[in-house]
Amino acid sequence: MTTGEAVTRESPIGTINTTPLIDVMLVLLIMFVITIPVATNSIQVDLPSGITDHPVQPLQNTVSLDADGTIRWNGDRVDKAELAGLLHGTTRMPTEPELRFRPDANTGYARTAEVLETIKASGVTNFGFVDNERFRTFEQ
């Protein structure tokens, strides 16, 4: 090496040139847009225009427990086996009705837990507790 020569070293570039990739993606995008058929068919759908006078009530069933532990299905007295059969029947409906559980405040915990276990074992998925507002305050 002489003193007058400039030393130039080319180091490898550690980045990828993305310009060709972007070009290919744009070409593919244009090809897809051109080949997609234009939606020329339309379907008329009659939508409701406003609020109806008669709101639709969803299907509901109520399981209640009296203070003495009596199980009631929509007001009718049933035993545990009948309750299990009724619950299993509702799970086979096309639209599962809402199951509302309303225990009395004086019902024993063991009886309430027993009925809840029957409900759980039946496979009911649309379930809720109702009238819990009455337990907001306690009488002294």
Rank of each mutant, 00 (worst) to 15 (best):
L47N: 08
G50H: 08
T52R: 08
D53C: 11
D53G: 14
H54W: 08
P55I: 12
P55K: 10
P55V: 12
Q57M: 14
Q57A: 12
P58Y: 01
T62Q: 15
T62E: 14
V63P: 01
V63A: 05
A67V: 14
A67Y: 11
D68N: 07
G69M: 02
G69K: 01
T70I: 09
W73E: 01
W73Q: 02
N74E: 07
N74A: 09
G75T: 04
G75K: 03
D76E: 12
D76M: 08
D76Y: 02
R77I: 11
R77N: 09
D79V: 10
K80N: 13
K80D: 14
L83E: 03
L86K: 12
L86P: 02
L87K: 07
H88M: 05
H88R: 12
G89T: 13
T90Q: 13
T95H: 09
E96Q: 15
P97W: 02
E98I: 05
E98T: 12
R100M: 08
F101Y: 10
D104K: 00
D104E: 09
A105Q: 11
N106C: 01
N106K: 11
T107L: 10
G108A: 04
A110D: 15
A110P: 05
R111E: 15
T112F: 07
A113M: 01
A113D: 15
A113F: 02
E114V: 06
E114F: 00
V115C: 02
V115T: 12
V115P: 02
V115F: 03
V115L: 00
E117F: 04
